[in-house]
Design a protein around this nucleic acid. Structure first.
Lengths: 125, 125
DNA sequence: GGGCCTACTATCACATTTGATAGTACAAAT
DNA sequence: ATTTGTACTATCAAATGTGATAGTAGGCCC
């Protein structure tokens, strides 16, 4: 699915892995969940994605070695997706991207740490 | 040029700024150069880009506040591009992306530190 | 044996991004 | 008046990415 990196540039190579409308979303949901997730379980957590696109993104992530697809022979067969070590190694970088995004793209956003005041403006990430 | 972030997700917002075929390339060249660069000076360092695309990428980077466009009234007027503070704040993240790319996408690549041996395999980044 | 659950795939269409090529606009130098 | 250097823009085309919708396939349950 994924061709060779478009250049011999390391950044481009890394970007080509995380580019894609829903890839970081999928990675983040899997990371937060901490355990493998099934197709329907995962897609139901993503608002506005169609099964075709979802499948495409999963396949690219799999062929890039970011997620692992495990077919389990349960009653109705089910397929579990989980982050590989390579996928997990992306998490610190994605966390930094998120922090950068918060600071530079949503400068007025309030991030809660601990209890909220009824006076303070509310915002979520 | 650039619309609002496609979601309220901080990572998506950050990604929307660095996505684009040549954006990280431009940022890296400006960072390495350390000084403002003119249009022709910059484009001549990028292999295979057409002036139209180059202009588009510059405009998006400018409207996202990553680079600064400064028109100087010299003999033939010239335009200088440089990284803003916001642009510079991306550099640590891009460095991490590059390192990740090196480790995971080019596992056999040799990176030189110091003098090279005539025996050792050569590679560049 | 019909419906349900699982995980998808097929088809078509649209939007966005990237590209090659040629040409423009303006000032300065000759 | 023509050429040079600067920084682009216009036009057309192709490639790539994203989407909605419906349908498929196989096993289990009753």
């Amino acid at each position: 699915m994924r061709k060779a990196p478009r250049t011999d540039c390391a950044i481009d190579a890394a970007m080509s892995v995380i580019e894609g409308r829903w890839k970081t979303v999928i990675i983040c949901i899997l990371a937060k969940n901490g355990a493998p997730m099934r197709f329907n379980q995962l897609i139901s957590r993503i608002d506005g994605i169609s099964p075709r696109i979802f499948t495409l993104q999963l396949k690219e992530l799999e062929s890039d070695g970011i997620i692992f697809r495990n077919v389990r022979s349960t009653s109705p067969k089910c397929v579990e997706y989980s982050l590989t070590d390579k996928g997990n190694s992306l998490l610190p970088i994605l966390a930094q991207l998120a922090e950068w995004g918060l600071q530079h793209m949503f400068p007025n956003m309030v991030v809660f740490e601990g209890e909220a005041d009824s006076e303070s403006e509310k915002a979520t990430v």
